[in-house]
Amino acid sequence: MSRGAWIGVAAFFVVVATVPAWITQQVAGEVSKQPFDPVPERLISGVRPGYVFLGNSMLDTRIIPGVFAEQAGAPAMIFSIPGVMSAAWYLQLKHQIAAADPAPAMVFVLFRDTHLTRPQLRTGGRYAKWLESLRPDEDEELAAVLAGSAEHLPWYARAWGLPQWWLGWLYPADKALRRGQHWLPEVGLRLLGRDEAKRKELRVRLDRTFGRDRFRDASGADVMPSASEAVYDFNGSVGWSFLPLMLSEAESAGIRLCFVRVRTRRAAMGLPEPEALSQYMRDLKTWLTRRKACFVDMKFNPAISLDWYSDGDHIRPSRREAYTRLFYDAVRDQLP
């Protein structure tokens, strides 16, 4: 190959690697932090619920707060965010629930299998945006857990993660996409609506058209086939999770935490769980009860049969009231 060709090849890779990096960083640099959402704190202070529920779609497709409140004899509120996991629950507890005056007496956290001790799950992409809205400023504890949970991994896992971290730093696509994803839709809006009022009206129509109340039953499946059953060593991972921080925040605010493992579709199908996972759950229970938190396991509740599920691990709307009553029966002994 000629000298000119060598230069051409080198220039190709330099341009292709650096120009998109520069563009991505420019776009990402203009993305500001999502504003903190103070509404839950105000709602709790106003309504003064005795019970608050945290979770993702495992929560809002299971629990009807009014039904629970009627049985428990005190107001109940749910604050579910689709898809999020322990990092969001920790931030919600710390900045929105424990900060309320008065704080609720009890907070339930609904989770699947090992998700409580896997702090990095669902913290990137659109979830990063949620996490930003759950904290007023940077949260040092959050950053420390996310970094620490990576640090305790074996050397080969950390070595594997290093170039990925470097790629993420060079091309901050997570942030850039948050801004860039609106550009083409906005072009479409401008082509259809000349003035802002028309565009606003179209946005309202879009939101109304795709409101959750208009979706079919089998919508928004949240299926994590067997991933949530992936076995982890509880005692080896709890120190790097949000659990100790959650218990400490709850204790300071006088809240009792209650963690409830939900029944997944796989369990309803009668599939046994690995022995190592059962051991993990025994360790989790011991750890929580020693710290005066409660643990309730609904995974093997035979009353919840396969026909209760709409899609993935979600419960169909017609069964939610019955589910809430079952839930109340399961946690009744733990209520203050």
Binding site: P20, T24, V27, G125, A176, L177, R178, G180, W183
Partner: peptide, 8 residues
């Protein structure tokens, strides 16, 4: 791809 993709 880095700027205009979907977030999910």
């Amino acid at each position: 791809s880095l700027v205009l993709g979907a977030t999910v």
